[in-house]
Design a protein around this nucleic acid. Structure first.
Lengths: 340, 340
DNA sequence: CTGTTAGCGCATTCAG
DNA sequence: CTGAATGCGCTAACAG
């Protein structure tokens, strides 16, 4: 309830002195600084965020664009959001969630023009994402968490799918695996040009070729029964498969069941590795899954630091655009059984 | 970029006329109303959220308090947050996420006193939650999504754990189950007084007694291997068990594996039902699990409508404090094998 | 180093 | 039914 005027009065200084003492854009004598601090203490004064915003033209609010997603929301996504909130709060910003349909940019225009937020983090980037044009035209700072090939010059941060896939395949090859099946997400996501699906598809294809691995890829829904059905088909079509690479957390139980049902054991007969995954998703499976875990901390740190630099008009060295996943080796992987 | 002044100028009226024409607190002649609308169109005018807030004393922002949680964040939580965001946006509000430690109310005080938000939704309510006192003292409208026995008079919305457990046990009994094991969340959560864990514990105990069911409860970590280990212990200690009730999504894979490993099949020998769960979590298990799904839509609708009523000083009939879950019957449940 | 003051863009009271 | 004027609380330019 106390305002800056009250503080100024109690400290026996002017309001601008109080303002500068708190925000520190010009030097204040120690005596007055102290007086201000005391008054602030006594009155329990906190600057009103709104008034400050109106005067300064900065709201200190960042929006995270999160559309309802085809493939269903997963554990990594929520971790990303929580991490983003924690990160921006540590920098005295706030995070608002905007749940909007990707294909209806009008609503986004409305929201932006309210000028409630200083910047935007865009998640779930699709190919030719229409939201990008909106953001750009509005002239608001934004960062893509993901990429859009149609806007290669935009600032973005993304998982390094290629490196992750490469590390994964090289590692599996070293373990003796030559026949590898990659379980991607749904064909629908692929057709929609959903970044992770497209990029892992391309990486897998290319790397199998250059590494001389006999690889097959399957697109897969996240429905347990459906996955299980497909597993029989896969084993029939790809005899001698010794390893599964999975970028589809929700297909994991079905895959494990499918393997078991063939009378095969993990990892003795078949290795399974979950990629671009979350520690949580993998740790409660049986057996505990080896995985390439998304490096959420670095992803978010890079995103937020860069966005805020843009907002504040500072230049910073672009940290890292592409963040690889981290290998966590647990019980679901091992050497290939007799190199076929 | 256009302001209300520009609109007023173009429409040939005063700013107050524009303001009233848009917010409609007093009657304006049709002619002027039209002129204003046209000018708004032409200029693409949108009221600046911040300026409006400063003048009106309302920010139209709601915070959702979401601490890092012991039991690990799950699918239902993220659904809750997304649904909350969608819901408030449909009412022209914004949702900010505040990730704060439960046990450090100071930071909450800081945030509240910035007066950035009109109201607060509190998730993950614990027994004697210290945040409640902070909110109350600040005099800010808030709703608990969950309950605290120490503050029974507070406005809250919660899952109806008792009814859910009752419906579940009655249903299982009708299917012939008499020996039922309840897998709750971790003992640590129980000791911390985490609402869902405490309430289901009490409900289960009481209902087993009154329904004459032989019930045993186990607290369980969300680590696949740990769960699996415990399953052997459970089968040894509770021979003849025909049904598992589980309020621990992340223990499900371990439970399913444990059952299989006993050479038992689901649901022929053993039924499994996941309670207070999310459709997603259950649908990708194999077999697809029957569940009592959290009614997230109703939970959030009740929470938000009530909170906004408080904020706007309107009185509304309190909708429903307790929302039961919805039974979805799939492949993991069936009649008990020869009623022991 | 410090005080005075003009806005920031809008809602709302007061006069008509 | 309408316009002019005030103020929300703070920042930042301006003037010393």
């Amino acid at each position: 309830m106390a305002t800056i005027k009250d503080v100024a009065a109690m400290a026996g200084v002017s309001v601008s002195t109080v303002s500068y003492a708190l925000n520190g854009n010009r030097s204040i004598s120690e005596r007055k600084k102290l007086a201000v601090k005391e008054a602030v203490q006594k009155l329990g004064y906190r600057p009103r965020a709104i008034a400050r915003s109106l005067a300064s033209g900065r709201t200190h609010i960042i929006a995270i664009l999160f559309p309802p997603v085809d493939h269903g929301i997963g554990l990594p996504e929520i971790d990303l959001i929580m991490e983003a909130s924690k990160n921006v709060m540590s920098r005295a910003y706030h995070l608002v969630i905007w749940t909007l349909q990707t294909n209806n940019p009008d609503e986004l225009v409305q929201l932006i023009s309210q000028e409630l937020v200083d910047g935007v983090i865009m998640m779930e980037v699709h190919r030719k994402d229409r939201r990008i044009a909106v953001l750009r035209k509005a002239g608001i700072p934004f960062i893509l968490l993901g990429r859009d090939d149609a806007a290669p010059d935009e600032t973005y941060i993304d998982v390094d799918f290629f490196t992750t896939m490469m590390q994964c395949l090289v590692w599996l090859k070293k373990l003796g695996h030559r026949r590898i099946v990659f379980i991607n997400q749904s064909r629908k996501s692929f057709k929609n040009g959903y970044g992770p699906v497209v990029r892992t598809h391309e990486s897998f294809t290319e790397l199998c070729h250059s590494l001389e691995i006999s690889g097959r890829e399957y697109f897969c829904e996240s429905n347990g029964e459906a996955v299980l059905g497909k597993m029989e088909e896969i084993f029939a079509a790809c005899p001698g498969t010794t390893a599964f690479v999975v970028m589809n957390d929700k297909a994991l139980p079905g895959i494990i069941s499918g393997v078991m049902r063939q009378g095969l054991s993990i990892p003795k007969d078949v290795s399974i590795v979950s990629i671009v995954s979350s520690a949580a998703a993998a740790s409660y499976m049986v057996p505990r899954l080896s995985l390439f875990e998304m490096n959420i901390g670095r992803l978010i740190e890079a995103t937020v630091s860069q966005l805020i630099a843009k907002i504040e008009g500072r230049y910073i060295e672009i940290p890292e655009r592409l963040v690889p996943c981290i290998l966590r080796e647990y019980q679901s992987t091992g050497p290939a059984r007799n190199g076929a």
